[in-house]
Design a protein around this nucleic acid. Structure first.
Length: 386
DNA sequence: CAGACGTGGAT
DNA sequence: TATCCAAGTCT
């Protein structure tokens, strides 16, 4: 059951209490200043912890750090977030990816105001019942925001890696991921400290992010190197840490760049709330499909194109990797834009000066950038001469 | 349980 | 350029 690799039993782990003290001492020395981290001794605001933890789900610290402060400045409280329209919140989430998290965050804020007096609950079950709050986030909020060390500690990918190496854990190929992670949680819980559960959790996560990294770990900088079974066995860099990811199949689509002659405003459309990039704005586009060659007439009949015109293809293509696909876009544009396009479903004109602040995905920003560059007068002249 | 769901930095 | 993969959750 306990899946330590062969020979791991030859290594005697240090007592958990001793390890916890060393994690904390390391954290006190190497603690990074992050926008959502209060100064030591300052009580944390559960709202700020919650927002940071949701933003950090599957996103690296540096990316979140760019978005966190503006988001918190705009919506400093649960009440402020709950009062905002979802479309507004999606603007603040633009570029962060996994847009369902923004939907859940917003729905959760409204639920907190309606049923929890605008406060995050401390209770484990109550937290888990909130949209977008799973086992990790519930445990993180309890430990970091409320200082609760009872129940299970937060276990993210960093903690899993640190624990797998510390105890030299390994599994047969084909072991279900759920079982693997259940065992990792059990080992992680065995490291629980006597106090400072929030700092303890962040210490191990920071250690995993900066020292006990996936490839070529910096074991010499590790505060528990002498207690690490994987290091003692010489397998710290070769231990199999998780299942492989499925390759992303390619998909193809065509986007339509429609610029209003009078003022240069651009036609955008909101994607369906469910599904990829849910609720974000983008230039009207076809579906993504396995083969190329979307023609204008075909796109019109598929409802992706706003109007019939003399469409021409802009040079170049836009490639973008999403969770499940790698999509390659061709971009088409028309010189003659008819008036009165309001009939198009969900379409809006957006002034160019407002594009930056809108709820665009990174993919949509790439399309916009590409179209702007390709339709600059100088660029067109250059292309014709070449 | 397996698959869906973004983005950008590191190697 | 290609591949990996990060403070996970939901269905």
């Amino acid at each position: 059951m306990a899946s330590r690799i062969p020979d791991a039993s030859l290594v005697t782990p240090a007592p958990p209490g001793a390890l916890a003290a060393r994690f904390l001492a390391w954290y006190d020395r190497h603690r990074r200043h992050l926008p959502w981290r209060m100064a030591p001794g300052t009580p944390s605001d559960p709202y700020r912890v919650w927002v940071s933890e949701v933003m950090l789900q599957q996103v690296r610290v540096e990316t979140v750090a760019r978005h966190y402060a503006p988001f918190l400045e705009r919506w400093p409280t649960v009440e402020a977030l709950a009062a905002a329209p979802l479309e507004e919140v999606l603007r603040g989430w633009s570029g962060l990816g996994r847009y369902a998290r923004a939907h859940n965050l917003h729905a959760c804020a409204r639920l907190l105001v309606e049923r929890h007096e605008g406060r995050l609950p401390e209770d484990e079950a109550a937290l888990r019942a909130l949209p977008g709050v799973g086992p990790y986030t519930a445990a993180a909020i309890r430990a970091i925001a409320f200082g609760r060390g009872d129940a299970l500690p937060p276990v993210d990918g960093n903690v899993e890696r640190v624990v797998a190496r510390l105890f030299a854990l390994g599994w047969e190929p084909g072991t279900p991921d759920t079982r693997r992670r259940a065992e990792l949680r059990r080992f992680a819980a065995s490291l629980a400290p006597d106090g400072r559960p929030g700092d303890h959790a962040q210490a191990i996560m920071d250690l995993g992010a900066t020292v006990c990294v996936p490839r070529r770990p910096r074991c010499g900088a590790c505060p528990v190197q002498d207690a690490c079974a994987a290091r003692a066995l010489g397998v710290a860099d070769t231990l199999v840490l998780g299942p492989k990811r499925a390759p992303r199949p390619k998909r193809y689509a065509t986007a339509f760049w429609v610029s209003r002659p009078e003022d240069g405003a651009v036609l955008l459309r909101r994607r369906p709330m469910k599904g990829p990039l849910g609720g974000t704005l983008e230039p009207p586009s076809t579906e993504w499909r396995p083969r190329r060659a979307w023609r204008a007439a075909e796109a019109i009949s598929a409802g992706a194109l706003p109007f019939a015109a003399d469409w021409r293809r802009l040079p170049g293509r836009v490639r973008h990797a999403l969770s499940s696909y790698e999509v390659e876009f061709a971009v088409m544009t028309a010189a003659d834009v008819p008036r009165a396009l309001d009939t198009m479903d969900g379409a809006v004109w957006v002034g160019r000066e407002h594009l930056e602040g809108e709820a665009l995905s990174s993919l949509a920003r790439k399309l916009v950038r590409h179209a702007l560059a390709a339709t600059r007068p100088r660029a067109i002249r250059h292309r014709r001469r070449a």
